[in-house]
Nucleic acid binder design. Structure first.
Length: 591
RNA sequence: GGCCCCGUGGUGUAGUGGUUAUCACGCCUGCCUGUCACGCAGGAGAUCGUCGGUUCAAGUCCGAUCGGGGUCGCCA
């Protein structure tokens, strides 16, 4: 029997009844009735029930089959009898009667159950035996969707005139941004390449090259600590276009996202996504990636208590801080005193020194701070926050940053506890009008919020000279359910403008030339106006598949300590290798 | 670097300082011709992550360490 003419298990149907068919795959499960054995055969397309009875010439081979053996079987496809139909299976109305069988490979007893849909196996084990984990249907579906999404992206962008262009992995370390992964250069001792944190500069140079419309499904590397949605290497859909304005890019990628959801999940999204300014997002939700599936808005009560006697509020306001509250609807009834104390610990993780609260009860107000506030202040606060009986009003008074961070996080936490989130909703929002800079107190200078090639908004150009922190950028982020899917900007394409920005973030002319001379040069040879965006592919797939970590949509991900449990990477290398690279380690080797 | 959680047969788990360390699935042997989480009978399988401490006695308490996860910092 040759491997040719193999059919896909999951694609067979009643249309194939009576045909002699060859299938091959893995033994998903066997049911041995003595003189009759059923095998659920699994291949990538699905499951098919095979039947063998004791009259079959190679029945002794069938008796030896175990889970995950790889077999090839030829036989006749037939209808199951009425009572034997299994509605849970796509191929539940048919079965293959085995007429010949060959064991292509045996398998040790699987470490965990491949046929079980639930991934309730320790992630350690799954990662060490990743090739087994990836046999599970859930994981196959994740990678299949990922494939479909990238295909849809390529198709959409191709139809819109984009060129897919590869850029180098071995590039140059640049200041700002994340920590680089470095690669030593053997032929240039003491010199290092950096793996790209993103193809940002390359794609701008491609615009200077006249490519006009570029995209790449690009691997990016950042040597920072890991999270559920952060891996040291991850994939971006990277896009850049010439002769465009912000609206062109927003419109294009809105259409692309719609197309992707339609084509891969048959989901119809709205024609356009709502927009929110950065300022409004921070003011109302305490985050630049607000989850708008629920309300729980932050309310500033600074104005109400501006003349308060309450020392804590007084001193915060005097120092230019902020006092905001959030109304935990009905929380007064739901949360115990202990749980409320727990929320205090929760906001403390985000820097808040305390969580003041006012519980509105049937019999009046219960509060940690009521005694420090006047009746009218109290009344106005309750009114401003629409406090009803049963509500729990919670407040943080601190610097603007701490207030927004802690209440933004509390908002999400409350939504979870109060079960306010509709898991099936797809809430897209564009966040626009980001500031160009923020102030870094440690380094005592401005730093770019997006990156230093982002163009300022036309009407804010004057502010660059007077009050740079007020200047807004021509930048935009696309947020889905509180996760930043992607972000981009219109770039600077003018030599002097770019120098001005470098100057503001404290780059000397000298330094700018050394670091980015080639880019500045490019601007002097007719670089077109351009802009673009980049999307986190892993995050998109994670959200589409409702996974809790991008590890589940990456074939071979790394653990939180950035290691690969299957390969045992990273690992020590030989002294000879290091020597060739002119590298010395100051760590004691323990092997 | 900080905080929090987890680590017990192959897998998932139970386990008030004193048990022969619980149960389910899986595995092995035998039986079984319509199952699909097949069934029935029997069996094997655990240095309780590692090291140290407290104690007459530690899976259990304490400390350290290793591994995994969540999160803050960090991630333009």
């Amino acid at each position: 029997m040759s491997l040719k003419n193999r059919r896909a298990c999951g694609l067979l149907s009643e249309n194939n009844i009576g045909e002699t068919i060859k299938v091959s795959g893995w033994v998903n499960r066997r049911r041995d009735h003595g003189g009759l054995i059923f095998i659920d055969l699994r291949d990538r397309s699905g499951l098919l029930q095979l039947v063998f009875d004791e009259n079959f010439s190679d029945f002794t081979i069938v008796e030896k089959l175990r889970n995950e053996y790889v077999i090839e079987v030829e036989g006749e496809l037939r209808n199951r009898s009425e009572e034997a139909i299994n509605d849970k299976l796509a191929t539940g109305r048919i079965e293959l009667v085995g007429q010949s069988i060959k064991i292509l490979n045996t398998s040790k007893t699987p470490i965990f159950d491949i046929s079980d849909d639930t991934a309730n196996v320790d992630e350690n084990v799954r990662l060490k035996y990743r090739y087994m984990d990836l046999r599970r249907k859930e994981m196959q579906d994740n990678l299949i969707l990922r494939h479909k999404v990238t295909m849809a992206m390529r198709k959409f962008l191709d139809l819109n005139g984009f060129l897919e262009i590869e850029t180098p992995m071995l590039g140059k370390s640049t200041p700002e941004g994340a920590r680089d992964y470095l690669v030593p250069s053997r032929v240039n001792p003491g010199n290092f390449f950096a793996l790209p944190q993103s193809p940002q500069i390359y794609k701008q140079l491609l615009m200077a090259s006249g490519m006009e419309k570029y995209f790449q499904i690009a691997r990016c590397f950042r040597d920072e600590d890991l999270r559920a949605d952060r891996q040291p290497e991850f994939t971006q859909l990277d896009i850049e276009m010439s002769f465009v304005e912000k609206e062109d890019i927003i419109n294009l990628v809105t259409d692309m996202i719609k197309e992707i959801f339609k084509e891969t999940m048959s989901v119809d999204l709205a024609d356009s996504f709502p927009r929110i300014t950065y300022k409004e997002a921070i003011d109302k939700y305490g985050s630049d990636r607000p989850d708008l599936r629920f309300d729980l808005e932050l309310i500033d009560i600074g104005e109400i208590v501006k003349d308060t006697e309450f020392k804590v509020f007084q001193s915060v306001l005097k120092k230019g801080g902020t006092i905001k509250g959030i109304n935990g609807k009905n929380c007064g009834n739901i949360l115990s005193r202990k749980e409320i104390d727990g929320l205090t610990d929760f906001v403390a993780q985000h820097g808040a020194k305390g969580l003041a609260w006012i519980a509105i009860r049937e019999d009046g107000i219960s509060s940690t701070i009521a005694k420090f506030l006047s009746d009218s202040e109290l009344e106005n606060i309750v009114k401003a926050m629409d406090g009803q009986i049963g509500d729990l009003l919670m407040f943080v008074a601190d610097t603007k940053e701490v207030v927004n961070n802690s209440l933004g996080a509390l908002r999400l936490e409350l939504a979870k506890r109060l079960d306010l989130i509709d898991e099936n909703e797809l809430n897209f929002v564009w966040v626009v009008d980001f500031p160009l800079f923020e102030y870094d107190k440690e380094e005592n200078r401005y730093v770019a919020i997006h990156h230093m090639f982002t163009a300022p908004q036309e009407q804010d150009l004057e502010l660059l000279k007077t009050n740079p922190l007020e200047a807004r950028a021509e930048a935009y982020d696309l947020v889905l359910n509180g996760t930043e899917l992607g972000g981009g900007s219109i770039r600077i394409h003018d030599y002097n403008r770019q120098k001005e920005i470098f100057d503001l973030i404290g780059f000397s002319e000298e330094e700018a030339k050394v670091q980015f001379g080639y880019l500045l040069d490019a601007f002097t040879y007719g670089a077109p106006p351009h802009g673009g965006i980049a999307f986190g592919l892993d995050r998109i797939i994670m959200l589409m598949r409702k996974c809790s970590s991008i590890r589940d949509v990456i074939a071979f991900p790394k653990t939180q300590s950035a290691s690969d449990l299957m390969l045992g990477a990273p690992s020590y290398v030989t002294e000879k290798q290091l020597k060739e690279l002119s590298i010395k380690s100051d760590l004691k080797k323990d092997k």
